[in-house]
Write a protein that binds this DNA or RNA. Structure first.
Length: 120
RNA sequence: CGAGCAGGCCAGGCGGCCGCGGCGCCGCUUCGGCGGCGUCGAGGAACGUCCGGGCUCCACAGGGCAGGGUGGUUGUUAACGGCAACCCGGGGUGACCCGCGGGAAAGUGCCACAGAGAACAGACCGCCGCGGCUCGCGAGAGCGCGCGGUAAGGGUGAAACGGUGGUGUAAGAGACCACCAGCGUCCCGGGUGACCGGGACGGCUCGGUAAACCCCACCCGGAGCAAGGUCAAGAGGGACCUUCGGGUCCUGCGCGGAUGUUCGAGGGCGGCCCGCCCGAGUCCGCGGGUAGACCGCACGAGCCCAUCGGCGACGGUGGGCCCAGAUGGAUGGCCGUCACCCGGGGCAACGCGGUGACGCGCUCCGGGGACAGAACCCGGCGUAUCGGCCUGCUCGUCCA
RNA sequence: CGGGACGUGGCGCAGCUUGGUAGCGCACCCGCUUUGGGAGCGGGGGGUCGCAGGUUCAAAUCCUGUCGUCCCGA
């Protein structure tokens, strides 16, 4: 799992990260912000009451923490992410959540294109 | 063997890889932490928050009136609205189960519709007597008739002012009698008690509803671990120093308005009134600051075993054990395997039964494993829960 | 942690205080009106009163438990 130092633990950290880039995939929404500071990367999780009861919420959180822990070493220092779980995440298994997380991260890392591509 | 009743228990096991939090020891450290080893790490409901207590702070001067809760008895307990045993009423063939189970002759209210009449009741039909009229020779019969008697019968209703049989009567009626049911008073016996059993007498019968108001008995200070405490930080103001960035010390939000200081604001004594006490601030608006750490906080009405008392809830004694403490919130993630349950396929092999189809064990495949996450602690209650196990008991059927 | 409100046809609400008939608006169906539609007029259908138990002759209403939703204070 993630040690304490690698987790976002205050309201201020969460707000700062949430104002960064955002991407959604499947049951997850990921906020990403590269601060450029020299400390290790950190992650935070938001699982609201809409996802389920305490048992379901804890299970989702624990799975996400493990998934992030497997990936966090590869990120550049100073990166903060916030992973928010949608109600769909309650029925998602480990593999499914991993796919959602990777997809959302890849999408968030891509530089945002200005304007939308209009369909022909 | 089949139905069923009651009580209790479990909450998958093992292994691999990768992790998280607390505590202890050791080592390193730039004093922020890091590493290693050891050890501990969710529940029977941790849940809902329906009760009761511990603990902490506030208050303690009482009186009256309101308010809330409980409601068979006796126990049990720190306490309870819990639990145990028993009593009463109801249900079941039975084991057993269910009951907010005080008072309706203290008072008030309500009882729709139907029905003649619904609470110190009521003559619609019927029944009976007298009178009237009609018919008939007459005995008598009849009536959309009048006056009176009558609560036995009909019908309505949840409920119609005791039941059955007789005496009696014009017809009837507890008007009277016998038995039965119920009520009240007294006596005897049993029980700590609720109450039970028996007897005598009485008037003969007095509806339901208090989960309607109410009456009676008993109980009840207010808040809540964001309780409460220690420390740090802080905006503004003042003084001093200054290299004009700031630093040190003291005090500790600033501004405006209302009201008040023995002619007393405001607060406290759970609410109101009286009374008493403390007493110089209190309230409103605008603007600003803080949002940290530690203690409380894990030895407790604690758990396990034995034994004694008690029908039991429970209590006494002795021995052993230390058993979660997070704070964007740890106690896990992934995989394998073995047992368990469900569904489907197969007899190719083995075992049992059957002539056999096949069934069971077996084997192959697929699926399932619930309800649910500590947040100051404890005792209960209530609710959710895939399934499995144990003990005692009841009824039915068959065999000996 | 403490306190409060609500649940009634498809939707939004009354009725609960003082227990006996569940009502209103929109929507739906049928008819009239119109060339047709809308509007209007007339008629009609539709409700386990969140769930379970209890009190009562009788419960949407009273009591207890339970489920869900929402709000307020610290």
């Amino acid at each position: 799992m993630l040690p304490k130092a690698a987790r976002l633990r205050s309201r201020a950290d969460f707000s700062a990260t949430t104002r960064g880039r955002r991407a959604a995939r499947g049951a997850l929404v990921v906020h990403l912000k590269v601060t450029g500071e020299g400390r290790p990367a950190r992650a935070g999780f938001v699982v609201s009451k809409a996802v389920g009861g305490a048992v379901v919420r804890n299970r989702v959180k624990r799975r996400l923490r493990h998934l992030v822990a497997e990936r966090i070493g590869a990120w550049e220092p100073g990166t903060d992410i916030v992973v928010r779980a949608l109600p769909l995440a309650a029925g998602r298994d480990h593999t499914g959540l991993g796919a959602d997380l990777d997809g959302a991260l890849a999408s968030a890392r891509q530089p945002r294109k200005h304007g939308r591509e209009r369909p022909k």
